[in-house]
Write a protein that binds this DNA or RNA. Structure first.
Lengths: 162, 162
DNA sequence: CTAAATAAGGATATGAATTGTCCTTATTTA
DNA sequence: TAAATAAGGACAATTCATATCCTTATTTAG
């Protein structure tokens, strides 16, 4: 059970977009170069973010993406679910229904106890991700990325953002 | 990101084994019949449990599997990790290292902030699963499975356990 | 006004992982 | 002694993730 690499890519891209000057866009090309990723495939991840309304896009030269909401209003969960989907990680195929001791036409009253427990764990995972915003991420990064690298990266992005 | 169906199978099998009379074994064949699962493939899941030392096995007629520890000492996490592995669900490929602004030979001091957050969520998921034992599951099942079905299933298992 | 740059998305190829089956071997018990 | 069993190797089928290529419509820069 491994998350798609696109989840990692999308999170890093969102982190960059969160530092974008107001009103500017950053293109797939620039994001791909900045992270050393295949442009065409990264584009699919960005399309997922766009479809989820987490980012806005515009066409043409100086086009690209920007966050659709303030960084404080976008959670890790938003990004993860945009790429990975909202489905729970545990799928119950209700194998208890195959129990040979079941009378004909027996009907379950609720979901399987095993599934409920697995879903609770899934909910705990999502709650953790919901509790961290892109703004919080940026704050952490600003503290721990060496100032020179932080500044030069910001300059690089500004230059590519038009 | 979907858990293997073998996780579901392993959990249901452990629930059955937890209700086994002291000293008895239940075979792959019986477990497969009880859950309506392909015997050969279910066998792989049970081998995973065996390799993780969660169950003990014995050969020959009346052979099969039983829990290696009291049900109160086996957690959902034990079972999930036996089948799914202990690896974290988020893999960090450290794409920050591709940042074109990095000076030559730059060395990271710690793991990426994004990975740390994803790993915290993973830890929360595991903590939830660690907190539920097979004994707790059995207790829940005993409360919510209709008494007639509970009894007949117990009889079925006892009969197949030798 | 024109040309270049871009997002969006369809089609398709590739590789890896999951799911599933079959067979052999060694062991244990009835 | 024979039947039943776990263990595991080999392999096939299917699904999914990864990746590339191409077309289209749109937008801006020049």
């Amino acid at each position: 059970m491994i998350l798609k690499s696109q989840v990692e890519w999308a999170l890093h891209c969102c982190a960059v977009l969160a530092g974008l000057p107001e009103g500017r866009y950053l293109s797939t090309k620039a994001l791909a170069e900045f992270h050393g990723l295949p442009k065409e495939y990264l584009s699919k991840a960005l399309q997922s973010l766009s479809q989820a309304k987490l980012v806005e896009s515009t066409l043409g030269p100086s086009g690209g993406y920007r966050l659709a909401r303030p960084a404080s209003e976008v959670s890790f969960l938003d990004v993860v679910e945009a790429v990975e989907g909202k489905e729970r990680s545990f799928v119950c195929s209700n194998i208890r229904a195959n129990n040979p001791c079941r009378p004909e036409g027996f009907c379950d009253t609720g979901p399987c106890a095993i599934a409920r427990i697995m879903w609770e764990a899934d909910a705990a995972w999502r709650a953790k991700l919901r509790g961290v915003s892109l703004a919080a991420l940026i704050q952490t990064l600003e503290q721990e990325v060496p100032p020179a690298l932080w500044r030069s990266s910001g300059e690089w992005v500004k230059r590519r953002a038009g």
